[in-house]
Design a protein around this nucleic acid. Structure first.
Lengths: 273, 273
DNA sequence: CAAATAGTGTCTCTAAGACAATATCAC
DNA sequence: GTGATATTGTCTTAGAGACACTATTTG
């Protein structure tokens, strides 16, 4: 009779064929646009980090940051490590989105990917100075259904506009998945991952919790509201929004002056008791 | 300059070390208990399918069904295939729960697991006749916090009682993850997977949608309510429950007679328009 | 003062929860 | 009839949405 110790000493995992495992990160940031009028409050735009592929396959096309899982790390650690390696940005938080494992999704062979949403504050991007890297850029993102019920994903940075058409798929635990109908300009199945990740982001924004991670420590309630609206693409009445988030924030005592209108109180996230 | 075709023909994935990838399935079923009194409506008990391990490691201990991902299949297909191979039961639906990849979680080596919840109707279990397999059994499941805030997982089948203690972890997209404090009787990190899977099941039960998958085509509203209560472990007032699910069901015209009390109307799930 | 945002108060409507009352069968 | 569940209805309350009104600043 073989003991477990004996069994393990003789056991060889290599008998089975194994896939390569990667993580891909959909890093979202809320970009504050320059305001045209000194009086107008600046707009907030949801944006997504893409990296221009320097090597084959899909050379020269834009893709999500990510990379191969290494021994002795979890997929979460891998996502954080790859983000830092490729972009010098440390995410505030990451949210698992799902596993993408369709055969043929990667021309290099059998590769399955674990997708994550990561939330980046505008502050940390400015500090990291990674703004100027030519091969990593923040693309403004828009994702809405057209009149036929198909969803159009549009990513734009200066003159570069990437488009993809997707079909709504199954919905589990609040997250809706999408299937690619057409994606000529994004590498791999990344259009699918981006759409599903955005659906996860929008779902978690519903409970007004993770939106704080997009902003600095202190913020005005209008800024918070504009973040919420940039993510969900749904307008809220400011009075109602203030009432809802009032339980989650507290005044810092500070004000924002010099904006051409009534100064706004600064708030911070209220710590849970 | 190398073309993509040339690149791919020379590309070798084997340069990188790769993990083995498995899926584990937390298959839940609602078991109808025998009623003691002819008048009493029978109780419903949430139960989980476990398999007694025939080989090393953890030989003789109970574990979730599951197995290795094969080339040319998705992780979802793998979960369905393994369920059918190991239990002859075809799940009505599966829900992805997460990826478990902590180094050392499997003594055989570098193995990461994709976890799924699957919902099995009592009917299909009776039909499959898989009831009598000695090495696959449905365990009554209970999972509640104790007075110290730790969570106690209890699985019981006849004289066999498996217990584990877990600590609440992070919560993402409605699903709370758990970490093992102590799990002497379940194989691998399966206590952690089971706890997280149950959290996912309870979360998706909140919107009164997937509970139908546990029941046959036609059911009474009390049966539906008892399913809901068996999953969430929270009692609902029957009048309110009926009002809530009324939009999702329609009468079949049938009745259940001979139960020692007023006959109940039979309902079926209303198809979405 | 005008333009623009900041901030407050109130009305309505809906949905959930609590609870009460009635209906109907098997024995 | 009795004991049990089935089914319907009503009252209350919490929260979301709509909207109107007041407050404050800077150019």
């Amino acid at each position: 009779m073989q003991t477990e110790k004996e069994f393990l000493s003789e056991y060889k995992l290599s008998d089975y064929e194994r896939p390569s495992v990667t993580t891909d990160i959909a890093a979202f940031m809320i970009r504050t646009e320059k305001s045209s009028n000194y009086r107008h409050i600046p707009k907030k735009q949801l944006s997504l980090l893409l990296i221009k592929r320097g090597g084959h396959p899909y050379k020269g096309m834009w893709a999500l940051p990510g990379g191969f899982l290494q021994p002795n790390e979890t997929v979460e650690e891998c996502a954080l490590r790859e983000m830092e390696e490729e972009t010098q940005i440390k995410p505030v938080s990451i949210i698992p989105v799902g596993v993408f494992s369709k055969p043929g999704r990667d021309p290099r062979g059998w590769i399955i990917s674990n997708a994550f949403v990561s939330i980046i504050s505008e502050e940390s991007v400015k500090q990291s100075g990674s703004d100027d890297a030519e091969d990593a850029q923040w693309f403004d993102i828009s994702f809405e259904p057209d009149e036929n019920g198909l969803y159009i994903l549009t990513l734009s940075y200066k003159d570069t506009v990437l488009k993809a058409v997707l079909r709504e798929g199954k919905s589990h635990l609040g997250v809706t998945s999408f299937e690619i109908v057409d994606s000529p300009t994004l590498a791999f199945d990344h259009a699918e991952i981006i759409a599903t990740a955005l659906s996860a982001l929008r779902f978690s924004a519903k409970n007004y919790e993770m939106i704080f991670d997009f902003l600095p420590e202190e913020f005005t309630l209008s800024a918070l509201q504009k973040v919420q609206e940039a993510i969900t693409n749904v307008a809220v009445m400011s009075g109602n929004f203030r009432r809802i988030v009032s339980v989650s924030v507290e005044e810092t005592g500070g004000f924002v002056h010099g904006e051409g209108h009534r100064p706004a109180k600064l708030f911070r996230r209220k710590k849970k008791e």
